[in-house]
Amino acid sequence: MFDFLTNPGAMRTANVWFAALCTLGLYSILYRENRFFRFFEHLFIGLATGYAVYTTWNDTLRPRWWDPMVAEGRWWWAFALPAGLLFYLIYSRKYSWMSRLIFAVFFGFAAGQAFQGFAAYYFPLVRSAINVPLVPAAGAAAAPGAYALTPMAGVLNNLLFLFIVISVMTYFFFSFEQKGPVAGVARMGRYLLMFAFGAIFGSTVMARMSLLIGRTDFLINDWIRQTVFRLPG
């Protein structure tokens, strides 16, 4: 009865139908929230959680805890179990404070790692911010397609760079009232931020459209043409 489950052709058809229904089910929220969407929403959450259970055991607990403890004889990994169970003491009125002990470890780790994180990430950024020479480079020539005020173009861009960095950082001062020229610079910083955010918005739109094109292509070609009407690919 279940032989079709080993048939590649049959399974492909089943997968495509299932995927198509899932797609249409979630798209239905664009009209309004409905029972069709709710069905696939709950299915999505169930599948995601079940998959998390499977991968948590398969990719984390078994290779990093169970196998070292049982197969390799590193018995001290047994301490990880009661430590991990401390999370669950949140549900005990008497012992809930003990769950803070495990969180204290995580908070401490996160805080301690902040120093290395700051240096590793921000030092190169500071270098890139400093690397803006304010005189023309020796031997600079007008490059085709460049902003042909070169060699001054580089200097103008660098001055603009510094101005933007300073004005945006000025916007983020909180501990004093921004008045006079400082307020003007801060306001400029906010407008420049909007400019930058607009650029991010614009550069992301195409990427999102391509995802929609991909999904629509699946529905039209994989599902309707090849699976429903069995037209050649």
Binding site: M11, A14, N15, A19, L26, M209, L211, R215
Partner: peptide, 25 residues
């Protein structure tokens, strides 16, 4: 393998891709 792929590829991955693509709207 096939039954797992039905739920993973046919279900979970397509639901993921759909929600991602819905952002375009």
């Amino acid at each position: 393998e096939n039954v797992f792929n039905f739920f993973f590829v046919g279900g979970l991955q397509s639901l993921d891709a759909t929600m991602f693509s819905i952002i375009a709207f």
